[in-house]
Amino acid sequence: MNKEKIDEHLASIKEICVDIKREVVVMEVCGGHTNTVMKYGLREALPSNLKLISGPGCPVCVSSQKDIDNMIGIARSGVVVATYGDMMRVPGSTTNLEALRGEGAKIHEIYSTTEVMELRKKHPDIVFFGVGFETTAPMTAYLLKKGVVVYSVHKTIPNALKVLAESGKIDGFIDPGHVSTIIGSDAYKDLLVPQAITGFGVEQVLRGIKSLLELIRDDKKIVVNAYQEVVKESGNPKAKKLLDEEFVLVDSEWRGLGVIPESGLEVRSDALNAKVKYKEIIDKVSTPKKTACRCGDVLMGIITSVKCPLYRKSCTPKNPVGACMVSEEGSCQIYYKYGK
């Protein structure tokens, strides 16, 4: 870490904010960025007219309650399933996967999809609950290529940004770093909002904020790639091809944001689609109930986590009500973890 560089960025940010005069609202889309912001206490060091808000870039947090309930239904029926650790505690309407495992359901927590291939030797009918943005989706596509049945809640970022941009409350986005390595900087071009792509180190985040503020000041509605070390214009063609081969782009429900057109990745093959294979089970799963949880407003950047009436009261990492409190990347858990 380079203290001089950091101070330099902070000074530039201060200067640009003076130039802009009014309040500037910037959303860091990705949970990884939110984590860096909190980890270093970045907000405290930024000018008072710059408001950083945390967006929907936590894949677990935006999975709809209906999808979680469906997965719980499948796991409860005795099917052997595998998913990432983050998914285990996302609340459905009555329980979560971790509690279900405590009751005896066969749920394997994995870190890498190669573990699914290992598990499959013992459990040929294993179902993988695939979650994540364009970063983890290629690994799920690999499993599909190998014939593993998948329940996909994979989502894609660009159209979600469009919905957020249309809310008119956000001046610009810090675009996600890892997602961009796959989809490339060109993927954000159609979105006429100032954006900067950047990495996750504190210096990179500051560099991203600085580049973004310059665009906002100059009223340039374009995307700047401040993460050229790893993000190319066209992204990762191999991964994109794999996604195209195994998934189709569909309308998808995001927790708190509602249905966003062409923002979900659905399994192309019906034979490998758990939603088709286990349709009978899913049809019997009851619809979710509403709570006072304001995850949706948090994801939209309408309120910060601390403004939610449940935050730190009935909603804690131990007993999360909303998905934003479940995941390491969820803005509520990140706020909680850093003692806000």
Binding site: L10, C30, M38, G41, E329, K337, Y338
Partner: peptide, 21 residues
């Protein structure tokens, strides 16, 4: 004290799970 500012270091809560994004 981080390289940027001073922040609370609370008692950890929940489980340590690698991030997927």
């Amino acid at each position: 004290q981080t390289i940027i500012s001073k922040r609370l270091l609370p008692t950890p809560s929940g489980r340590i799970v690698p991030r997927i994004c």
